[in-house]
């Protein structure tokens, strides 16, 4: 299962990087979403996957193998929330940018760089 998810993470990273390299800002945002999901899965995977076992040790569950680490899940939850906030802000910024300039092309951002 770990191997499968690792491959999925790889695919998500590849797709995210591809989308980020596109010129359209909307596609850039999609790329960011893909990358952030890939990263979340990576963090989630970092403690290994133990299906169906509780996140604490008790009389029934005593060995390390049967114990699932709750920390990465808490981390992923936090990261998802932060990711939501950032994507929301990015979309709102993109929308405002589109309103002001009518452009969805990163090439049209050039003027701020080389202005004399």
């Amino acid at each position: 299962m770990e191997v499968l998810i690792a491959i999925l993470v790889g695919f998500l990273y590849a797709a995210g990087v591809y989308m980020i390299l596109r010129r359209s800002i909307v596609k850039f945002i999609i790329g960011i979403i893909l990358l952030s999901n890939a990263t979340n899965l990576l963090v989630f995977l970092s403690a290994g996957l133990t299906a169906g076992s509780p996140a604490f040790l008790s009389d029934q569950v005593s060995s390390q193998q049967e114990f699932s680490d709750p920390l990465p899940q808490a981390l992923v939850l936090t990261a998802v929330v932060i990711g939501l906030g950032i994507v929301v802000f990015t979309i709102a910024l993109k929308y405002k940018f589109f309103e002001v300039t009518g452009a969805d092309d990163l090439d049209q951002l050039k003027p701020t760089d080389n202005q004399k």
């Binding site: 800002i25 990358l35 910024l93 405002k96 940018f97 002001v100 990163l106 951002l109 003027p111």
Partner: peptide, 21 residues
């Protein structure tokens, strides 16, 4: 929210987002 600020903001935001990922 001027045109220049939004353009600068998008550049600032995109690279910093990649950094935090």
């Amino acid at each position: 929210s001027s045109r220049e600020q939004l353009s600068g903001g998008i550049k600032y935001l995109s690279l910093n987002l990649i950094g935090s990922l």
